[in-house]
């Protein structure tokens, strides 16, 4: 099992081969778990639920990973993010819709940068994305955070920010471009620039 590629493991899972699932689990659980923990804002019960659903989906729905769509890791994290948003947002909708004021936003950022022990394999990439984010304006950073990590839709964000949807869309486009340009400068070949 250990010598198999991710693709080969996914193919084995299609044939209900349990050891293949366990191998994928061993390879990626740290990534999926850590990512989910951030999405769940440190709630370990919710994190467990997310991780369970991610591997259940790998096992039951037989979503096929297509290498041409990009790296397996990215694919896996996309699934994880979608499941996490489903679980977190479902719960939030049962409560009252959350309005975010700037003060809360600062607190949230503080929480995020609180000294959690760093021991990361993708350290460089993480460092770069953080630096890149520093180049965004505060409203752009807030947009990316609400969108990516909190899983709000653009319309919901527009409502929260009391800003027209068109402005938010434009802000998103500008933010992504700024991040890309910064990272392509810093990382050279890692992000291919569109030009």
């Amino acid at each position: 099992m250990k010598s198999k590629t991710d693709e080969e493991l996914v193919a084995l899972i299609l044939q209900n081969h349990r050891p293949a699932l366990e191998e994928l689990y061993d390879r990626y659980v740290k990534l999926v778990y850590s990512f989910s923990l951030k999405m769940a804002k440190g709630d370990s019960e919710k994190t467990k639920e997310i991780v369970q659903q991610v591997f259940l989906r790998l096992w039951t729905t037989k979503q096929t990973y297509n290498p041409s769509q990009g790296k397996f890791v990215n694919w896996l994290l996309t699934i994880t993010r979608n499941i996490a948003i489903d679980i977190i947002r479902k719960e939030q909708k049962e409560h009252v819709n959350i309005q975010l004021d700037p003060q809360e936003w600062h607190q949230m950022q503080d929480q995020k940068t609180e000294g959690v022990p760093e021991q990361v394999s993708n350290n460089l990439l993480k460092q770069q994305i953080r630096e890149a984010k520093q180049n965004l304006s505060e409203s752009q950073q807030r947009l990316i955070h609400l969108l990516y990590w909190e899983g709000y839709t653009l319309s919901e964000i527009a409502e929260m920010e009391r800003t027209p949807l068109g402005t938010i869309k434009n802000r998103l486009h500008q933010s992504l471009k700024k991040l890309r340009n910064y990272m392509s400068e810093e990382l050279g070949g890692v992000v291919r620039h569109g030009k």
Partner: peptide
């Protein structure tokens, strides 16, 4: 392509954590 990669790269902005042994 490049914007999609940028969007996906946002996923690396998290701290790796120790996974509880009982989780598996």
């Amino acid at each position: 392509q490049s914007l999609k990669e940028t969007w996906e790269m946002l996923s690396y902005d998290f701290e790796e954590q120790d996974v509880p042994a009982s989780l598996k």
